[in-house]
Amino acid sequence: MTNFRKDTILFEIKKHLQKFKLSDGIFCDGIDVSTTQKLASAFQLPKREVEVVALENEIIPRRYLRNIGTIGIKGQTKLLKSKVAVVGLGGLGGAAIELLARLGVGQIIVIDGDVFEESNLNRQLLATEENIGEEKTLSAVRRVTKINSSVEVYPYQVMADEGEFKEILKGTDVIVDALDTFSARSALQRAAKNLNVPLVHGAIAGFVGEVSTIFPEDPGLDSVFSSSQKVERGAETSLGTPTATPIMVAALQVQEVVKVLLKIGKPLRNRLLFLDCETSSIEIIEL
């Protein structure tokens, strides 16, 4: 976008300025959702680009007001300019896209070849009684757009193999592993490494779950997956996947995504966080 165009958009944004109160009592300039929509339509731009112009001029879209105290205006701008892929739209993936959309991650790729069935209703936020039998990616697009229409969603209704992962995931900033078989997770990890993209792994069974962040140069979870490659699934085959566990693990995964995108905190690199909600234990395992 040229500076002239940015100035023109900013001029229009300034006509709709409102004063919002930040958490610490300081007032800031901001715009609301309807202004973003109006200007995006007038300038024929994606809404997130209007929001980016606003943020670059320290004007905060009200919808992100409660993010700013922690991640700052620069952090919010970076999130809006980022592209994150969520691979698998089950318990983990459905919760992850909900959080990524509310955070304001500008572009989300969603990949799953499945349709909803009744056994998904206990935990998968995208599953409802009305959409049993429907393609998961379709519900994902609908849900993200309902939450935050500034986010662009790119759906891929496919059970992808390693080659397809490499094609689809080109240009992403972070990939979320929300799959449910060891072979698919392993293929995704190889694709992420090949594409030079960080991967946030998450898995659940019963009241336990695990999270780890793998940068392309890290050894990754090959050693963890390899001993399981004779079996496709883990403890979840006997313990099932009850309601709260995937939501907690997806939340931890999204937090890792934020840390990686904004280069803040200490991502779980070469470490596996193992969460046991039944005993209220967290083990951080050096791999």
Binding site: G88, G91, R185, G202, A205, A235, E236, F274, E283, I285
Partner: peptide
């Protein structure tokens, strides 16, 4: 010492 089973659900 802690012992963990494989966990793979999504």
């Amino acid at each position: 010492v802690a012992l963990f089973p494989p966990v793979g659900g999504g």
